[in-house]
Structure formats: structure tokens, C-alpha cells
Write a protein that binds this DNA or RNA. Sequence first.
DNA 1: TAGTGGTCTAGACCACCCT
DNA 2: GGGTGGTCTAGACCACTAC
Lengths: 243, 243
Amino acid sequence: MPIERPKPIVDQVIAILRERIHSRAYLPGRRMPSESELAQELGVSRTTVRTVLAKFAAEGLILRKQGDGTYVNERIAEFDTHFGGVRDFSDLIAGNGYTPAIKTLALSQRTLTNTEAQELESDPNATVLAMSRLFYANEQPAIHATNIIPHTLLKAPAGTIQGNLPIHQILKTYCHQQVGYVVSDIEATPVPAHLQTQLACQTNQPLLKIKETFYNKDHQPLILGLSYYNFAILKLRLVHAWE
Amino acid sequence: MPIERPKPIVDQVIAILRERIHSRAYLPGRRMPSESELAQELGVSRTTVRTVLAKFAAEGLILRKQGDGTYVNERIAEFDTHFGGVRDFSDLIAGNGYTPAIKTLALSQRTLTNTEAQELESDPNATVLAMSRLFYANEQPAIHATNIIPHTLLKAPAGTIQGNLPIHQILKTYCHQQVGYVVSDIEATPVPAHLQTQLACQTNQPLLKIKETFYNKDHQPLILGLSYYNFAILKLRLVHAWE
DNA sequence: TAGTGGTCTAGACCACCCT
DNA sequence: GGGTGGTCTAGACCACTAC
């Protein structure tokens, strides 16, 4: 009885099949069981199986060939966490085979800059909490991230925030806010002076700069993110399934 | 009778609803008709409507609120083409509100470098066609792209290739190959000397460098892409729907 | 020809939000 | 309570590929 009924069946099927692919129970490059077989084995409808397979196909994790079968993508079966589908830098690091670690560098209060106020559609005099963190991949510093959180959003004292939580978890726990969508702009930048030592990178090699704005489902901007990404340590990779 | 039967119904519904959103028939930030209403109006099942809405939600184009309704994302309703879902630079440029143009700079033959041979899993002595193109947004040069196409793949003389076609179209027409998925690695780089004039950018401002590998559904690498992206002209933006 | 994935339907029931 | 989106089912038929 691999399926417990009370929880969303689709999520359970996702977890089961993803695990089988990761653990190489379904070998990379090889055909996996047909939709009908999976439906029968798991005791769910073929529609449900197809919902899950469609999700995996969109991620590029599997390839479906009409009249033939469904194949495991041999190139991303093990490290399937790419930037496009990521909600948390620690997951990204772990998904690429590294051991993640987080160090909180600073937690300070200040007022907004004009640009920030515009992006948050907020009063420029509002005070915010600025949280800077460093994400390590196998003890190498890979990402420097700063989040700007308006004080009006915080439901708990700033000092109580745990710096090792993913940012959407912080939003849920300390702001009672659910993220609807995130807009990320990616740019290139020379290494900022204050990050040279922290990211341990060379001066002549530019970094990737990622500007994020988090919105809830009511279209309100919640918080900002500004990250510097050392692609020499960790690839910024997108996998794009076709058709 | 808005629906013609012979073509895939889902695709027709996608086209109809996307057009309504773009044309502001459904206003940004406002609620659109319910799933049942759309199903009835278009004469299709609610399941079909839901398939389409799920796709739009994954793109961030709409937001669905249980017990309430489906809302048009007011921030990306007009310019919904972001980098994550793009298969063609011209579409990306047009989707961001610019007029696209393409100029073919060079079309030459050479042998592979070692790195390229490795990425294509090919004999290092193989000859390839190197096609360099410049993509303009409103007459400003925005992207410099070079594609490496193995000669063994070409079913037609290199001289017959039309340089204004999207790369997947070139693959289909001249190589009889269907793209299964694409892996893109994004890096930052100082402006290469030979691109300073072509991209009309300043020396001290780095560029984004995008390395792409195109695979078919049989896991074979087909062609390579190396693009330099001037983010000062065109944002490299990802929209990431949550949950 | 048999089996696969692709498409589409009709309908049941649930969880949730609003008034 | 009434309407919305969320979940899930059973089954029909089609298009395609391998054998």
C-alpha cells in the first residue's frame, strides 16, 4: 500500500517517482514503466500519473516519446535542481551535490533607498530590516544574499529571526505572508569591493547579480533580494524542456 | 463557434485566452471568468480549461485563489515573455515590447575546439558550421549569438540557410532534428574586444554570457550556442510562480 | 498488430472564501 | 449557502512507434 489516502495523491506520486529516479531505480537514459503500469501499481488513475509526468517533463527530468515510452533524462537525473525551479539557495546547492551551509553576516535596520521604495511601492521613509547572508557550497562561499524586509510586515521582533531558514519560510513564519510569485532580474557586475574577501574571488572576474522581488497573490510586493552569485563555484543553469 | 475541432483544442484555448489577456479583455489585476464559465463559453470540458490555466499559472501569467477566483497578473500581463520560457531571441525581444531584427554576421566552416567536441560528444576533427548573428531590439544591438552546427547534421548546403530563422526552426528544416531540451549556463564576462563595437557597450560594464547545448529526445547533443547578452538593453528576467 | 503516450470528456467530491 | 478553485476518477478515442 504505497499510497496513503489523506494527503494529496499527486504529491505522493511526485515524491515516489522522484525518489525512484534519483535512486536510479529507473536508470538514466532508459525507459521507465508505462503510464498504465504506474497507475495500476500505485492504485491511482492514469490521469493522476500523467499530471506528475507532465510536471517532470516540464522540468526536463524525463522525456516522453509518443508510441514508444517515457525515458529518464540521463543528464539531469541526479542533479536536477537548476536555477529556474529553485525557491531556496540551500536546495540549489544541495541539489547540485554540494553540502550547503549558511552564515548570517548582518541584521540591521535602516530606511529605504528611493529605488527600493519604488520597487516595494512603499513610503521612502519606511524602515526596513536588512539581512545579509552567505551561502556556502562545500565550505566554499558561493552566494552573498541580502534581503530587505519592511518593518510593517514583521509580526515578530527582528532579533528572533533564525538566519538559517529559507526566505519563503521566514516570510511565512515571521510575516504571515505567502509568496505568489517572484521576479528575478539577472545582471553582470564587477566584484563589489566589500565582497572580494567574503566571496574569495578575483577582481577581474565579474559576478552575477540577481535582483529579486517577492510578491503575494494580491500583487503586493513583499520583500527584495539582492544576491551576488559566484558561478565559478556553482553553475547558474537553466534546463528548458521543448514542445 | 470559437473552437475548430480538428486542431488540438488545448492549443486553441491557450491562444484564445492568451490573446484576451494581452489585449486587456481580461484586465490586469482583475478576476477573470470562472473555470466553469470558460468551459461552457468555449464548449470544452472544465478539465481542458484547467490544463490551460495551470500552464498560465506556472508562467506567472495568472494567479489562482481557491474559493475566490483566477486573477490576471498585473505585472506581466503585457510583457509576459521572460527568459525562462523562451525558445527564440526574437520572441523574447518582441514579447518585451521591442521590434526585433536579425543580422547575420558570419557563416563559416571550421573544426571543433576540444571543449566543443566534448560538449557535443563528437570527434574533435569534425567540421562544423559557425553562424554568428546579431539580434536588435528597436535597432539597438542586444544579443550577439553564435551557433555551432556539426556538418554531419546538415541535410542541405550551408549556403541555403536563412539567417533570420529561429534556431530550432533551422534545426528542423536543415537538419530534420527536433529539440528535446536545452541546457543553458549563465555566466558574467568582461566585454570581449571583438564585440565592443558590435554591441556598442562600454568596456567597464560586463556582459552576460549564455552557453547553450541543444539535445534531442534521444539524449544526443545537437548543436551549441554561445550568446552575449546586453542586459542594459534587454532585461534577463525570470518569473517564478510559487506553490 | 499491440502497446505507448496524447487528447478530451463528464462528473464526483472536497476545501475554501465570500456575504 | 452558493460559488470558486483543487483533487481525482474511469473511460473513450486518437496518433504514433516498435515489432
